[in-house]
Each structure stands twice: as C-alpha cells, then as structure tokens.
Amino acid sequence: MEITLSVNGEERTSEVEPRRLLVHHLRDDLGLTGTNVGCDTTSCGACTVLLDGESVKSCTVLAVQADGHDVTTIEGLAATAAGDGDGDGSAGAPLHPMQQAFHAEHGLQCGFCTPGMVMAAVSLLDENPHPTEDEVRVGLEGNLCRCTGYHNIVRAVLAAAGEEVTA
C-alpha cells in the first residue's frame, strides 16, 4: 500500500506492506533509527513517538494507520521547539527544552530508552504542564529505563516543567 506521512515536518511517501509496524517503517524504510525497539510486548516504550502530537508506542501502530498523519521522532523534536517562544528564537534550536533538561539533569546514560522517554515526557507535559513528582512517575510508567533508576529522568521532567529540583 502507498502511504504518505508527514515525518518531522516532511512529507514521506512509501510503499509498505499492510502489516508493517510504524516503528519498522520509521527505522528501516525512512532510516530514522533514533527510535528504538526494546521489547515485543508493548512494555518498554523505547519506540515512543508523537503521532499528531500525542505519544504512541510505534511498535503497536501499523504504518498504514499513520497514513495522512503527523509523526514526530527524536530527530525532529528540536525543530518543533524552534521559535516557540522559549526565548531562543532561532530556527533549528539545537535542543528542545526537554532534551536540554535531560542533558542538564543527567537523565540519560546508555541512551537507548532516551528517544522514547523524551517523547513520552514531552507528551506528558503537554497534557499536564505542572505535574507533581508522583504524576511524573506514574506518567512515565510505560517507559522503562535500565540505567538511570529514573531519579534524574524525573528531575529532568520536573525541571522542564519549570519546577525547582534539588539533587
């Protein structure tokens, strides 16, 4: 089947098998390998991307279901923040505020969960701009990280929400 997705703001038309998963389409057909696969039971969230602005696990979405929709992956995230009033003003800001917060708070180690985690966190703040620590923890329950113990991920999300964080 022929599908057209807007991926990171760019129209991408391809021929895909009906059973092709969105994550494989992004990784193998479009070469966007930032999105990872960590499991086969929809448990880990490594594959999380934004579909029309909302986080989805791209291992549970068929590529054809995304036909005609907007997909944002980690590769395109920073561009969505450029000129969004974050004071930076420059088009093509190097980092989205959430990416910046993960960097500043050391919210990543091996980086494998990171693209999915960052996308889930962006979506979380979109829905709840000022979450409590518990809300962040529950909100990220579907995204596993084996390295960080979540401590600094939670702090990064709170920091991105403009909250004071202490070590």
Binding site: R27, A78, L95, Q99, H103
Partner: peptide, 21 residues
C-alpha cells in the same frame, strides 16, 4: 560537568548494532 555524549544521543539517538550503516 554535563556529558559530552548527550547531544548526539538526545537528537538523533545512538548508533546501536542494529543501526550500523
């Protein structure tokens, strides 16, 4: 010191074995 590894991992993701081109 914040990590020098981060910008790459945060913007395009790492190049893990499955990603090697």
């Amino acid at each position: 010191v914040v990590r020098v590894e981060d910008p790459r991992l945060l913007t395009v993701g790492g190049t893990y074995a499955a990603d090697v081109d």
